[in-house]
Simulated assay, not measured.
Amino acid sequence: MDATANARRLRRSQTLAEKTLWTLVRNRRLGGFRFLRQVSIDRYFADFVCEAGKLIVELDGATHEGREDYDENRTRVLELFGYVVLRFPNERVMADPGGIAEDILAVLRSDRV
């Protein structure tokens, strides 16, 4: 399966946490920053990407338990492409979506952008 088809499949099968975050960031709703979903970078698909801010937001659910080494390596690779990677557990997205949005915006508005 090619990268575009795989990205489409991932977008169609979003988790509830991904749908919640997408509602917050889509159509430049978060500080005017444009986000894309399931972007192919190197050999990985990043959950949410803001190219202007060189920011990747990753949501971690149950499938990430026990895969900390894999996730750390993945983060290192994405950082080599110049991105800052933020990780949030699905549970936090569902419990505090406004807080997540504030955390993302704080990084986007920081001096590192």
Rank of each mutant, 00 (worst) to 15 (best):
D47E: 09
R74S: 09
A52V: 09
F35W: 01
A62W: 06
I56P: 03
D42K: 08
P89A: 07
L59P: 06
V57S: 12
F88E: 01
R74D: 03
E72C: 13
D60Q: 11
I41N: 06
G31R: 01
E68V: 13
F45T: 12
L80A: 14
T63V: 15
E79C: 12
V77H: 08
D60T: 09
A62N: 09
P89N: 09
Y83F: 15
D71A: 12
P89K: 06
F88Y: 07
I41E: 05
Y83V: 07
Q38F: 04
Q38V: 05
G82R: 10
E65Y: 13
R67C: 04
T75Q: 10
N73Q: 14
F45P: 11
N90A: 12
Q38I: 11
F35L: 02
H64L: 04
D60G: 03
V57H: 04
F33Q: 00
L78V: 09
G53S: 10
G32S: 05
R76P: 01
D42I: 00
D69K: 15
N90W: 02
D69T: 14
E51D: 10
R87H: 12
L36W: 08
V93T: 03
E51M: 15
V49H: 07
S40M: 05
H64A: 14
T75F: 04
Y83T: 08
L86V: 09
F33D: 02
G31D: 02
G53K: 06
F35M: 02
V93M: 12
L86M: 15
D47T: 03
F48T: 08
F88K: 01
E58K: 10
D60F: 09
D47M: 03
Q38W: 04
Q38M: 06
N90H: 10
C50N: 00
R92P: 00
Q38E: 14
V85D: 02
E58V: 08
F45V: 12
L80P: 00
G66H: 01
R34D: 01
R67D: 11
L78F: 05
H64R: 01
L78A: 04
F48C: 03
D47A: 02
L86S: 11
F45I: 10
L80S: 15
D47N: 07
A62I: 14
L36Y: 13
E68N: 10
V93E: 02
L55Y: 03
F81N: 08
F81C: 11
D69Y: 11
E91I: 14
F45C: 11
P89F: 06
K54E: 03
A62H: 13
N90P: 01
